[in-house]
Design a protein around this nucleic acid. Structure first.
Length: 303
RNA sequence: GGUACCAUAGCUCAGCAGGUAGAGCAACGGACUGAAAAUCCGUGUGUCACUGGUUCGAUUCCAGUUGGUACCA
């Protein structure tokens, strides 16, 4: 008796500039399948150069999804990604046994693999109001409100992180329930199996690649890309490594040379945070990006 | 060649009237549930250039050596 073949999601994750894109394309070509990008900034079609979005040539080699699918003016979040990616996977699995998820946004990868709790999207007016009070009365205001509305979360949250508390407050105010009571910390069941592959390079090697990629972005016209986005500078999508620094330059706050240096530094820090995130997920099996054959063998043995 | 000054963390530099040292930046570690390339927390990582001398004790004082900078030749 034949058992139905279970579908497989291959997660290719790792720090920025490690070489995820080209490996994913190679794998997708060999497995004749699609790539779901999971990069919270490559969603935005206006952010191309500074986010190292795959080139037209690369995109042509394998079907990609979630690249340039949004405008910087669109609102988006990890929960939406979860439902959209799940819906897309359902379709793709009708014709493919394996699909590749490729990206460096840990929260979004988790949202797809484990699910994210059902919480309300932020109400912009409410968020604005809380934020104004925060700016007026400081983080103590946030802490006091949280202690009243959700003492449990208050006891364990990082109380100096305004974003965390603002989110907890807006959920508590919108639902009338403590934020902590809505978090299940339970993984949602999935109709497919998942293998997680982490890509790793020595720090020196990674930093060298970051440095070279930054030089490349500049040559490819990053400054012009940012200049064309000046009217969108207040949007969250522009709060991104590569864009913030060039904005500082265009504002005359720093030299162009300094902006490049800052991009390199901030990209290294971003890579470090990504590594911290992925390291704690013990499901990852780590490979050097050159170990394509080993990775392919692992995937095929899982099919 | 002479004179002066300098040599302390990856970098820029404090400091010690003698009791083995500390800031900023960088770096490193961590947190993370609708902002996540975001946001936030933590950590000094050192042959105090080298070799001697004085001293109970030298990174600190003295001499020499090496390297650097400036000026004079």
């Amino acid at each position: 008796m034949l058992t139905p073949r279970t579908k497989l999601l291959v997660v290719i994750a790792g720090p920025t500039a490690v070489g995820k894109t080209s490996l994913a394309i190679e794998l997708a070509t060999k497995l004749k399948t699609h790539i779901l990008s999971c990069d919270s900034r490559q969603f935005y079609r206006e952010l191309k150069i500074g986010t190292a979005t795959p080139s037209e040539m690369e995109l042509a080699k394998a079907p990609h999804h979630f690249i340039g699918n949004l405008s910087v003016t669109d609102y988006y979040n990890a929960a939406r990604y979860e439902s959209e990616a799940l819906a897309l996977l359902k379709r793709l699995y009708q014709e493919h046994d394996v699909v590749i998820l490729c990206g460096g946004s840990g929260l979004y990868i988790n949202a797809l693999c484990n699910g994210i709790d059902e919480l309300p999207d932020p109400d912009p007016d409410l968020r604005k109001e809380i934020k104004e009070n925060y700016l007026k009365f400081g983080v103590e205001y946030l802490q006091n409100e949280l202690q009243k509305l959700d003492p449990i979360y208050y006891s364990r949250v990082d109380r100096l992180n305004p974003n965390r508390i603002i989110r907890a407050l807006e959920v508590a105010m919108a639902t009338g329930k403590p934020y902590s009571s809505l978090l299940t910390h339970r993984a949602k069941p999935r109709q497919f199996r998942i293998i997680k592959i982490g890509l790793f390079r020595e720090r020196d090697e990674l930093f060298e690649r970051i440095s070279q990629r930054t030089t490349c972005m500049v040559t490819n016209g990053l400054v012009d890309e940012v200049r064309n986005l000046l009217s969108f500078r207040h949007l969250n999508a522009l709060n991104t490594v590569g864009y913030k620094e060039i904005l500082n330059y265009l504002d005359g706050k720093i030299s162009l040379e300094q902006a490049f240096t800052d991009i390199r530094t901030n990209t290294r820090r971003y890579a470090k945070r990504q590594l911290t995130w992925f390291r704690k997920d013990t499901d990852y099996q780590w490979f050097h990006p050159d170990q394509q054959d080993e990775i392919l063998a692992l995937i095929e043995s899982s099919l």
